[in-house]
Nucleic acid binder design. Structure first.
Length: 293
DNA sequence: AACTACTCCTGGAGGC
DNA sequence: TGCCTCCAGGAGTAGT
């Protein structure tokens, strides 16, 4: 569930409290959650100071002293909480367990003890999250291997770039296109639906069927939806449903509820095995549905 | 090369 | 209450 806005707001929060802290002890109780292509081991982060906290796509990069970095991907259900005793200093990611729940939770699988007595907890009810230790000068290589696309807030994400990618994958459903991290990074299931709702484009529209105006609209919607989430609060959907009475998110999690724009009942369909919510009135169906993979 | 299906994992929800 | 089944979703990988 943590998508770009969740990871970015978490990064900003942790930057306030973690920079300059030294890691005394590190522990991951689920060995599968450590990916260690360089054979450095998790303990190699001990004794190092957190100097910088970056984000690339949906990943957090902790740059430590001595040229070592730790990359954290929260995947579907990862959560980080920086606490001193019971006091929450900073937190973010998947909202289950609740951010004010006592830690460690039974799904807490990682802990980093810091030099001021605070602890950075990694909790993940799905255990899909991953931690990688990598020399700082090889972080870019590691990212390059993943064939990540452009950052939506970066200078490379232009209307022309989007148009070019859409042409290249012209048969793909828009929803599938937006989830593909090799084009634009950062969108997940929630914000892909939000961007399509905002752009008034049906999730099954073939990527190659968009007019120039629609491409420009989609481009702006992607940026606006992500920026809105960062500035006004992330989606925070615990079980893929909006909280009763909430007016956000505007499409995802609202199946069977009235569209906030026109009142039409929001529909839920599967697009490439991902639940996809949209307004059949605001987002008119394509004449001929594409493949959905 | 481009696309699709499958896999990892477990807690919560809903049915009976 | 308790058992059972289904569902959620990022991304790596294997197969078409």
């Amino acid at each position: 569930m943590p998508e770009l806005p969740e990871v970015e707001t978490l990064r900003l929060d942790l930057c306030r409290t973690l920079i300059g802290r030294r890691i005394l002890h590190a522990d991951l109780t689920k060995p599968r959650m450590l990916v260690d292509p360089y054979g450095l081991g998790l303990l190699s982060v001990e004794g190092r100071t957190i100097e910088r906290l970056r984000r690339r796509a949906k990943m957090l990069v902790f740059d430590l002293s001595g040229g070592l970095s730790m990359v954290v991907h929260l995947k579907l259900a990862g959560q980080l909480s920086h606490r001193k005793g019971d006091h929450v200093l900073a937190k973010g990611g998947h909202p289950v367990p609740p951010f004010d729940a006592p830690l460690p939770h039974k799904s807490t699988h990682g802990r980093f003890d810091l030099d001021d007595g605070s602890v950075l907890w990694l909790t993940d009810i799905r255990q899909f999250g991953r931690v990688t230790v990598v020399p700082t000068d090889l972080v870019d290589d590691l990212m390059a291997e993943k064939k990540l696309g452009v950052e939506p807030f970066g200078p490379e994400f232009t209307v022309d770039y989007l148009a070019q990618r859409l042409r290249r994958h012209k048969a793909l459903a828009l929803k599938t296109f937006l989830l593909d991290q090799s084009g634009i990074v950062g969108l997940g299931n929630i914000y892909a639906d939000e961007a399509l709702f905002e752009a008034k484009l049906h999730p099954l529209r073939p990527a190659g069927s968009l007019t120039a105006g629609e491409i420009a609209r989609l481009h702006r919607s992607v940026v606006d939806v992500l920026r809105y989430a960062i500035e006004n609060g992330v989606a925070d959907l615990p079980y893929a449903r909006v909280r009763p009475g909430a007016d956000y998110p505007r499409a995802h999690g609202r199946a069977d509820m009235p569209c906030l724009t026109c009142g039409t009942t929001i529909e839920r369909i599967k697009v490439g095995a991902r639940s996809t919510d949209f307004c059949p009135s605001c987002q008119p169906a394509p004449a001929r549905p594409p493949r959905t993979g």
